[in-house]
Design a protein around this nucleic acid. Structure first.
Lengths: 219, 219
DNA sequence: GTATAATTCATACGTTCGTATGAATACAAG
DNA sequence: CTTGTATTCATACGAACGTATGAATTATAC
């Protein structure tokens, strides 16, 4: 029972920056693809280890279990996105400009990692309570968006009633737009892998949100 | 090889309107729950048949395979929603009113069948091309929404650039709002099972879309 | 070099999976 | 009743699953 491999923190594992195989990273990568493509249950340990060029027992050795690998995959792939959102949210400009920047970050990051939204939505559409790390990440992301909305609200630049609902409405758009890509081709003959089209979609979402939040006089 | 059970059309199967067990319907119901809750791979034939109070071989007998049951579950549960959307889209009123009606239908139907959006999103977030029946249903639904948008566009009542993108932006909202319900409690302490809250969410989405599509003067 | 720890490897275990099979039962028609 | 069909049932099969095990190998320290 010596193969714990989880005792200390990283850095002592496999000399990442060297030319060594770094099985651990390969498993995270392969696991990401497999989980995104087939879901947790659909992706098998044999699939993942084979794709990673590792032995069947590698997941048990490096992570302890398939479930633990899944958790690390989630965290490792969601954190960079939310980090980018955080910096975009803290950037300069009016609240509306910062919001557009956040949408752009979202959109670009998801477009460059087309499997990520699948992973996220599978996690959320599973119905079960996601692992606490995921909840924390989502919470952090929501916090960034809500911060912008609050700023715009107090400055009178944005018009909205409910902070949380509006946040959901906004975040839903890049996620959905990205995840619907395969269906958009089928239904509308639109190819989201074309950068031109992708940019058009981004601009649509930005304009849509901008229009929705524009202050106006009404009951 | 006599248990085909798929030769003719319905009506000869099990005398639905009688007091008989109607295993077939029970399997569709149990399969819907199980697939929505655990995904296709996560839901086992043994789970489903047990929940349906049927024998282990019942799925093979009545549908031929687990996959075939899944297809029927998808179709049986998506069609009623899209039918309702169709009637709402064909209703009276201005395009904006019809759009709000469609959103309300969406919202209400999804709220009453909280597992349905999970099923839909799992299907779409699986990445693989959904079965052609599902594509057809989605296409029909998109057609209804796009019809309203086109009407409003020619009447000058709605302002939008891209028909398809706008449709995605609209449909995404009730879906996301419903599916995010568990996270909304966690993140914002909001209980979507409360009818009051649910109605507030509906009104938010309607107002959000209305504002986004309101004609205005700009570049 | 040798000793010690970290990692890989082949293989096996027990479980669960979807489906197949044929006997048993329920039902409808004559 | 008897006959024939539709359905249920218990059980079995082979495959795939996640994980465990201990030997082989590789890296690190001395």
């Amino acid at each position: 029972m010596n193969y714990t491999a989880r005792e200390g923190n990283e850095s002592s594992h496999q000399a990442g920056p060297s030319g060594r195989p770094d099985t651990r990273a390969a498993l995270l990568e392969a696991g990401f693809h497999a989980f995104a493509r087939k879901g947790f249950d659909g992706a098998s340990v044999r699939d993942i280890t084979r794709e990673a060029g590792a032995n069947l027992g590698a997941i048990t050795y490096h992570f302890g279990s398939k479930r633990a690998l899944y958790s690390e995959v989630l965290e490792a792939n969601l954190t960079p996105l939310v980090d980018r959102v955080g910096t975009a949210a803290a950037g300069p400009g009016t609240p509306m400009e910062r919001l557009s920047a956040v949408i752009a970050v979202f959109f670009e990051h998801l477009s460059k990692n087309p499997e990520l939204p699948r992973l996220m939505l599978q996690e959320v559409s599973a119905g079960k309570q996601p692992p606490p790390e995921v909840v924390a990440i989502v919470q952090r992301n929501a916090g960034y968006v809500m911060g912008i909305l609050r700023d715009g609200q107090t400055a009178g630049e944005l018009h909205l009633r409910n902070l949380l609902f509006t946040t959901v409405s906004i975040v839903a758009q890049p996620l959905f737009m990205t995840i619907m890509a395969p269906l958009l081709r089928e239904v509308g003959g639109i190819d989201m892998s074309d950068p031109k089209t992708r940019n058009a979609a981004l601009e649509h979402v930005q304009a849509f949100v901008r229009a929705a939040l524009q202050p106006r006089e009404e009951a």
